[in-house]
Design a protein around this nucleic acid. Structure first.
Lengths: 332, 332
DNA sequence: CTCGCGTGTGAATACGTATGCATTCCATGA
DNA sequence: TCATGGAATGCATACGTATTCACACGCGAG
């Protein structure tokens, strides 16, 4: 079927190893031979078999990326730059989507079909990292991590971001504040809530559990959480959402409920997805560099694959910035 | 490093081929041996090497998926079901994103590192299909195709969908109608425009070039196209957009320009992405089953890989349905 | 003139699995 | 008792590349 290096060797009148060396610019092969081989390869339209190379070098130049739900608007903005960075580093991307990362068939990760893994959906109680460790499979966390100090992770200063929002709300005079945070078993959820709570407390603003909702970082979480919050005796004048996708769910729910934003309700997100700037939303949010976050993760993983990495773990933390748009206002 | 079938063989006291057979439930291996091997494999935590298997069987159980821009909200809704269907068929997904499919490094597709390819971003002038044909690499078109009869493709009845919209607009009394269509080198763009034009003509409604824009299926296309259309001497009372993403760009532009939808302007999309139903949009659009579209493509590709396919090409066409929501109204 | 060395190339082999073919063993029937 | 046949397993090898090692050759130095 396919053209192999043996065919090229025959045509060029050299041995197979010489073909292998010539095409990879091994300095030990003479200029004349290199040209001869190159022409033969060209003539036969030769493309080296990836499987043969993999078996011989025990390196696949492939990286797995695990996400939960690709249709969540957050993930594409992670995956796209991740793909580009990996690609420019000479790696290809295998996409693995699973509901929970427990469900990721271990076999698929451990059959040596990739050189490393990016975990974009880690929960703090996940067993996956331990399994990867046991097998010596390099991996890095992206956005979320387990919170342990020896992780390799590219993350955001979630706590700082949460603080930014709390200070802003307090300054705007909001006293009845609500939070729709991410799941308690994600560091992104926990840290944003933590920063938010701490800075609220410093400003003398309370956050009773009755005004707190926790759930997946999904549209539906925000959309379904708002009615109950508004239905309380003392409804909140402001809601901090775990991320932009949740906030967009809230904005739609507010529209459905006839609640005016920001006149009746201040809504704040996190991430600053491109979508947050759309006219229909003009969402006030917390920005961080999602593109850089992903690129860092890619580079970190590649360095870990190459073992050029601090064995005690490396955590790259990106700063956050408050982005005022049109969904926040002074408390009435 | 890794545990191989030889290690398992040694522990189980059998030969390596027996291990290979036992673990794949070859009926020729006795029940007792099978159990013995299974226990040994378990004990050693053995996972078969994918590279070895690939080299031996010359099948990778991997499929490439080519898209342009993953951050375009359309693609995730294609990729997610595609991934799931491929996964349940025993294939893994390699994601390849490139600006133009000309730029897809041919080498990456032809090095036998995947068994087939899904082309989700074909243009009618792409050379890629011919290259894949030449190499005997199985592929199918998803959503877009080249329009040739011997394609393997899973597509939508675009022309029918375009007709639906035209009839609806005509029935609502719209006479000054505009179109923001997809690129002229995509079948999705051309066919939707074609159906729209034909049915408009039947209703006696004209569509002058001055009210036609063509561009990429992106938010920005719709967003930047609207002002010029509205600026004309006789501005349109309705706009048919090439897809929902473009329509959402138009809706945002309308909001920015202070144009009321649907009172001043009717806006219609195509695809019915989940986002189209959000309260902020309530976009009237044309629905087709995007999930089924993707699944069909996956199954078709797998059949083509297995050579269980009509050599003359197969084209699976999904029907469309008009979905009235809140962005259309009678012409003033 | 010989020794040693560097350069360029080929032969042999490793990588891990799957498979065609040969072999062994045992039971069955004549 | 021996041929026959089937069941179970092992042997040898293929897959395509990269790498280790050995070899041939030419050249300069002694």
């Amino acid at each position: 079927m396919g053209i192999t290096s043996h065919d090229v060797a025959k045509l060029a009148g050299v041995s197979q190893p010489t073909v292998s060396r010539a095409l990879r610019d091994d300095p030990r092969v003479s200029r004349a031979t290199r040209e001869k081989v190159r022409r033969a390869a060209e003539a036969l339209n030769y493309v080296p078999s990836e499987a043969g190379r993999t078996l011989s070098t025990s390196a696949t130049r492939r990286v797995g990326v695990i996400v939960t739900d690709l249709t969540n608007p957050f993930y594409p903005h992670v995956i796209a730059p991740l793909h580009d960075e990996l690609s420019s580093l000479g790696y290809r991307m295998m996409l693995i989507t699973e509901r929970s990362d427990e469900a990721v068939a271990e076999e698929k990760l451990l059959d040596q079909s990739m050189d490393g893994v990016v975990l974009a959906t880690a929960t703090t109680d996940s067993r996956l990292p331990a399994q990867l460790d046991r097998r010596g499979m390099p991996y890095v966390f992206l956005n979320r991590d387990t919170g342990r100090s020896d992780d390799f992770a590219s993350v955001v200063d979630n706590e700082g971001g949460g603080r930014l929002v709390a200070r802003e709300l307090a300054a705007l005079g909001h006293r009845r504040v609500a939070g729709i945070f991410g799941s308690a078993n994600t560091t992104t959820g926990r840290e944003r809530e933590m920063g938010f709570r701490l800075a609220l407390a410093e400003a003398g603003v309370g956050l009773p559990e009755s005004r707190v909702v926790r759930g997946a970082f999904e549209y539906e979480t925000g959309y379904s959480a708002l009615p109950a919050l508004l239905d309380a005796d003392e409804p909140p004048t402001a809601v901090f959402c775990g991320n932009d996708v949740v906030a967009i769910g809230v904005l739609n729910a507010a529209l459905a409920a006839g609640v005016r934003v920001p006149e009746d309700l201040t809504v704040i997100g996190f991430d600053d997805l491109p979508m947050a700037a759309w006219e229909v939303f003009r969402l006030t949010t917390v920005r961080h560099d999602l593109r850089e976050l992903s690129r860092q993760a890619a580079r970190l993983l590649v360095r870990r694959i190459a073992k050029e990495v601090d064995p005690a773990g490396e955590r790259l933390v990106l700063p956050t910035e408050f982005v005022p748009r049109a969904t926040h206002a002074r408390a009435r």
